[in-house]
Design a protein around this nucleic acid. Structure first.
Lengths: 118, 118
DNA sequence: TTATATTATCGTATATTTACGATAAACGAT
DNA sequence: ATCGTTTATCGTAAATATACGATAATATAA
């Protein structure tokens, strides 16, 4: 990155960027989906699901944990991970806020309700 | 990245990851917000808004353009950019889909409705 | 205590990202 | 045609990210 200037931006922008970065790899999205479906899941299951080496999966888990999207507990030789609903909720809020800005710009895209206005 | 294995994942995961990566820098979020507010905006305005060199801003714009989140037209010596609602809408859809998966896992976070437990 | 299984970490190689200054390109104005 | 303004691209440097194999760590099972 070289000389990150992240501190020059708004707090929300920085946080959203950080969370978006966590979602910026298909493996991490797949991990989150798997964790969501299974509610709790041990690392080994993820490794056999993904086309990646065990150490790589572990790295992705670490990153997801770092930003708070999941937490993991080491129980014995196995580690079980699960979604952290709080951060998911935070992400949801930040995304909603961003998309509200988009609505102000472009015609609203989703539930098409007729809007008066120029 | 080294030996990207993106092709081993689902199409939606890859696309969402790509769009999330575009959002993974505060400058690009700031650019999108500015474009949304101003509807259309020339590069120079963005440069003076952001704590980054002109060439760096241009790079970020290029990346946003590459993934289709904005389009830009070169009119004369100035370039004007604007949001591409189609890709915004696509992103919105992919995010909604992902968050639906989360709802299935964790207690729903937003409109708190009492649910009978398992 | 000694295996066995599972996961984290280390070391390493390579690709990508981010940033800047310098330069090129493109158009409008003179 | 030349100048000035604006933007894109090039070259480059440094930080991150991604991936793997090898190894260390840890708890369970024997």
């Amino acid at each position: 990155m070289a000389v990150s200037k992240a501190h020059e931006f708004e707090k929300d922008e920085i946080k959203l960027a950080e969370l978006a970065k966590a979602l910026s790899h298909p493996a991490r999205i797949a991990i989150l989906k798997k964790l969501a479906k299974d509610n709790v899941c041990i690392c080994g299951d993820l490794v056999s699901d993904l086309p990646l080496a065990q150490s790589t999966v572990s790295q992705h888990l670490k990153e997801l944990k770092r930003v708070g999207l999941i937490h993991g507990e080491i129980e014995g030789p196995k580690s079980s991970y699960c979604i952290n609903p709080e951060t998911i909720s935070q992400l949801s809020g930040l995304i909603d806020k961003l998309f509200k800005v988009f609505d102000s710009c472009c015609p609203p895209t989703k539930p098409i309700t007729i809007k008066k206005g120029k």
